[in-house]
Simulated scan of single mutants.
Amino acid sequence: MAARRRFSSTAGRRAPVKGRAALLALPAVVPIVVVVGVSLTAAGLQSVGLMPFFGPPQFSADAWAGDADELVRSSAISLYIAAVSTLLSLVVGFVLAAYVLAMPRTGRIVETLSAATIPIPHVIGAGAIGLLLSDSGFLERLLGMPDAFPALVSGPWFVAVIAEYAWKESAFVALVVLGSISRSVGDLCDAAATLGAFAGQRIIRVVLPLAVPSLAVSAAIVFVYTLGSYEAAWLLGPTTPEPLPVRAVRLFTSVDLAARPQAMVTALVSVAVSVAVISTAILVLRRHRSLR
């Protein structure tokens, strides 16, 4: 009975705190919801011809069905780029975070260098990766392979695009992981070491479980960002097939105003995939908390 009373009193205290937090967040959330809602509504109406750029409004699903094959192909390319880039970013970022935690002295240098890459715009990063991996670039000259160097820039596998995203976002993942577990992981690793756990066992059985929530959040953020990012895919990728953001910008800036509904369809598909990824990440986090 006493335990139930304590639980009820604690729950009663938490409810007003959550309510106050929601009220404090409203001034920031409401404008974002209004802007995003109006934008998505306008894009949806334009995609079906009810808000045309010229001519009378007339419902039409031609923008959705007329070029469905190309839209599916662009979606598959974007998912491929985002998935591979996110996976590499998570692996490299977690390794960086584990190294910083295991080697405090040299790890500070690695953490500083990683943090220094975050403010660099992706346009500059794409240019640097292009100079590094392109034909007659720095890496080709360093290896001395003028005739056998693979087509990494503008190649069919988007290697340079994925490399740019993985390089930039791995530093972000590492800093998120360090910020979430750096306070609690030290004592737990020391306890595991006293019980005879090796360095690899401490990383896998202590650091990795603690980093799962932050890795899930980072994965969702990196995936959504790379899915909708335009600069690197436009500068380093091939002209065909086009990822979703490149296709959307090309159609929207086309001199043919009849292509605008197709651009809106492409943008809405990107938003739908992003919402699905974010929802999945939230479910993973809730399940992880319920299992703890």
Rank of each mutant, 00 (worst) to 15 (best):
C189L: 08
A68S: 12
W167T: 03
S182I: 00
S214I: 03
L113C: 06
V92D: 07
Y80W: 06
A68C: 08
G12F: 09
A83L: 14
A163H: 02
A68D: 08
S254Q: 05
T253Q: 15
V222N: 00
P31F: 06
D67L: 06
A97K: 00
L195S: 09
Q262W: 15
R105V: 07
A191Q: 07
A98M: 02
A82N: 04
L113K: 01
V206W: 00
F252V: 10
D256R: 10
S214T: 04
V36T: 09
A281Q: 11
D187W: 13
A272E: 07
Q58Y: 14
I109W: 10
R260D: 08
D67G: 04
P261T: 09
I124L: 12
R108L: 14
G196Y: 03
L133T: 02
G44K: 02
A199F: 05
F59M: 12
V72C: 07
A258W: 15
L132T: 02
P238L: 11
L215P: 00
S89E: 10
T10L: 14
A151T: 11
T253P: 04
G44V: 02
A151R: 13
W157M: 09
R108A: 14
S170T: 02
G144K: 03
A42E: 12
P150N: 07
V273W: 06
S229V: 12
V30E: 04
R250F: 13
V153G: 00
A211Q: 00
D67M: 06
V36L: 06
A148N: 12
G19Q: 08
V284I: 15
V29W: 10
R73L: 11
V110P: 01
R20G: 14
E164I: 00
H288L: 11
W234K: 12
L87V: 05
P156D: 10
I129E: 04
A43D: 05
T106Q: 11
S279C: 14
I129P: 00
R108E: 13
R141H: 12
I109L: 15
S154Q: 13
T239R: 14
V212G: 01
V177S: 01
V110A: 12
F158E: 04
F172H: 01
M145G: 04
A76Q: 10
A259M: 15
S254I: 09
V30C: 04
G144C: 06
M145Q: 09
A171D: 00
V29G: 03
I181K: 00
A166Q: 01
F59I: 13
F149Y: 10
P31S: 04
L215E: 01
F94T: 00
D256W: 08
L195Y: 10
R205N: 11
Q262G: 15
V95D: 03
A248V: 07
D256L: 11
P146V: 03
